[in-house]
Design a protein around this nucleic acid. Structure first.
Length: 549
RNA sequence: GGUCCGUUGGUGAAGUGGCUUAACACGACGCCCUUUCACGGCGCUAUUCAUGGGUUCGAAUCCCGUACGGAUCACCA
């Protein structure tokens, strides 16, 4: 097409494509360095699937001495959300993921391959479109949406393949004179690729995760530049990832079917395509069927869900790691002390069929993780969570810091620590009875011994004759046994099992009475430690509360 | 409808022609240990890899068909 016409189609461009090719030279990185990106639309919504993808991306980049950058794909101006970019960055950072380059706020960015916001790259896309126009590899199309719809119906009724291709792509055959006439008439237009693809030929793509993929070539004249002058996703992707020297495009597998389009575009532009890595979706069981996790139906899809529940970020990342690389868990179990970042991830260990998002497994990982951190870390994290989501608990924690720390430390710094909590939101329920001002139970979880008089006898006898604040754990328990002997309960479990009829009950039953009296709960961490923290005065007060109940 | 992908237990999965009457982890269940719970220990949870056929001395692993599930077919990304 002659340049005057092209100039009318895409006016005001000051550079040619060589200018941009030189502006963004090859990156000076190691041979194996992976350069990849996170490229969301600024709808402001990051979900757990995005975090999953990003985890893989940043892991692979960091592991190879490469780069991950954030590119904002805002070519659809209608879907924009206010402060969308900041929201994305905030959510991503809340999972500990950072970028080497790209947008850092609504208006700022860092890195030498920008702009990283697609709407700021309009001229670049148009320059490449112009080049294609000049070479006769693209053309303007004045077809209206209504006409397109009509075409689709026609193809449907005649059972043809649907799409703007071959002889159906009527605007392909417009002469330059006709184009000028339409331009004179002020008709709106878009720019389309003049595809050289042939549906009967095959394109073969080697996906780093899925292996060899084969498709018919794409012969559809894809839209390059939309009516508003901005590029379509496909066109922008080809140019951006070429200019930004992306080596690996890591994205959700809903994109695999556009692979022929992207390959075709790269070919038309004379680019070498990047390596594509399509990751499987995170699924959920819904009744009997399995479907992709949905942000409308599934609360666990939202990033905020994890923060509100107080599921530690580390646990979520651990879970995503186990889902992404099937050999991660084995590695993790055999390297308990090692930094998780030392694990070497590989694309070929990423599964191809979508995994069910397993909350139970996540909780298990989380319980393990929380059992391994120190009491003070646990305290700080819980407090931080409570400040945001449970203010009353936060002030209790602050006012009773020592008690909370001691309580959280029970059976913690030992070889096999307790696994009481999977999330910070569970901590209140596990420790409220340690706060004297909170302890005024309306319900006691009595177990075998429920008779009020018997309970009071046990408690009074214990406090009067056996309790000594200064006892160590062994003496303490021996005295509980003495109490049993004194009241007709078996202090020795074996004897009890042999002749249960000789006793009113056993030492476990008696211990449970003490436990429930002091905490109202039948399940707590080690009773001796709890009593030690509570102190004699408070224990006596609690016995009185039992009498009053 | 076209195109493409996938299918190993309740779940995540290992497995790429013989070492697999299918590893490991989570969950469920049972037993043991035990002052409760937890932890821990032991056991159980797929005679079989969606299904039918074929290749082979031999198949979860290779080939073909079928079923089921998923993705995609926009001037959205």
């Amino acid at each position: 097409m002659k340049s005057e016409l092209v100039e009318r189609l895409l006016p005001g461009l000051t550079h040619d494509r060589e200018y941009y090719e030189k502006l963004y030279p090859e990156r000076n990185l190691g041979e194996k360095a992976i350069v990849t990106r996170y490229a969301p639309s600024p709808t402001g919504f990051v979900h757990i699937g995005n975090i999953f993808q990003l985890y893989i991306s940043s892991k692979m980049a960091r592991q190879t001495g490469g780069i991950v950058f954030l590119r904002i794909e805002d070519t659809d101006q209608e879907r924009m959300v206010e402060n969308g970019i900041s929201k994305i960055i905030r959510d991503v950072e809340s999972f500990g993921i950072t970028f080497d380059e790209g947008a850092i706020s609504e208006t700022e960015e860092k890195g030498a391959y920008g702009p990283y916001i697609q709407s700021h790259r309009k001229e670049i896309y148009q320059t490449y479109a112009k080049d294609l126009l000049l070479k006769g590899l693209a053309y303007p199309d004045f077809t209206t949406k209504e006409e397109l719809e009509k075409l689709r119906k026609e193809q449907e009724t005649s059972k043809r393949r649907i799409g703007y291709y071959g002889k159906w792509a009527r605007s392909r055959f417009l002469t330059e004179e006709e184009i000028e006439e339409k331009l004179d008439a002020g008709l709106p237009y878009i720019i389309r690729l003049k595809s050289t693809g042939d549906f009967n030929r095959k394109v073969v793509v080697e996906d780093a995760i899925r292996g060899k993929l084969e498709f018919p070539e794409d012969d559809i004249d894809q839209v390059l530049i939309k009516n508003d002058g901005l590029p379509t996703y496909h066109f922008a992707h080809a140019i951006d990832d070429h200019l930004m020297h992306t080596t690996h495009v890591i994205r959700g597998d809903e994109w695999v079917s556009s692979l022929p389009v992207h390959i075709g575009l790269h070919k038309a532009l004379g680019f070498t395509p990047p390596i594509y890595c399509h990751i499987p979706p995170l699924n959920k069981k819904d009744g009997n069927s399995i479907r992709k996790l949905s942000k409308r139906k599934d609360p666990e899809m939202a990033v905020s869900y994890y923060h509100e529940m107080g599921i530690p970020v580390t646990a979520v990342m651990l879970y995503l790691a186990t889902v992404s690389n099937s050999n991660f868990e084995e590695w993790y179990l055999s390297h308990p002390k090692e930094d998780v970042s030392h694990f070497e991830m590989s694309f070929d260990k990423i599964g191809t069929s979508g995994a069910l998002f397993d909350m139970e497994k996540l909780f298990n990982l989380s319980r393990n993780y929380l059992s391994q951190i120190s009491a003070s870390e646990m305290y700080e994290n819980t407090l931080e969570w409570a400040k945001k989501y449970n203010e009353k608990f936060a002030s209790l924690l602050t006012q009773n810091k020592e008690v909370a720390l001691q309580f959280l430390n029970i059976e913690r710094e030992v070889e096999k620590p307790r696994k009481d909590y999977a999330m910070y939101s569970e901590v209140y329920d596990g420790m409220w009875y340690m706060f004297n001002e909170e302890f005024n139970p309306t319900e006691y979880e009595w177990q075998k011994i429920t008779d009020k008089e018997e309970i009071e006898t046990i408690l009074k006898t214990y406090m009067e004759s056996f309790f000594d604040e200064n006892d160590n754990e062994e003496d303490w328990f021996n005295k509980v046994k003495d109490l049993c002997d004194a009241l007709g309960y078996a202090s020795n479990m074996k004897e009890y099992k042999q002749n249960p009829e000789n006793f009113k009950g056993n030492v476990a039953d008696v211990s449970t009475v003490l436990r429930v009296a002091f905490t109202s709960r039948s399940r707590t961490p080690n009773l001796y430690d709890i009593m030690k923290i509570l102190g004699k005065e408070e224990l006596e007060r609690r016995i009185e509360l039992v009498s009053k109940s």
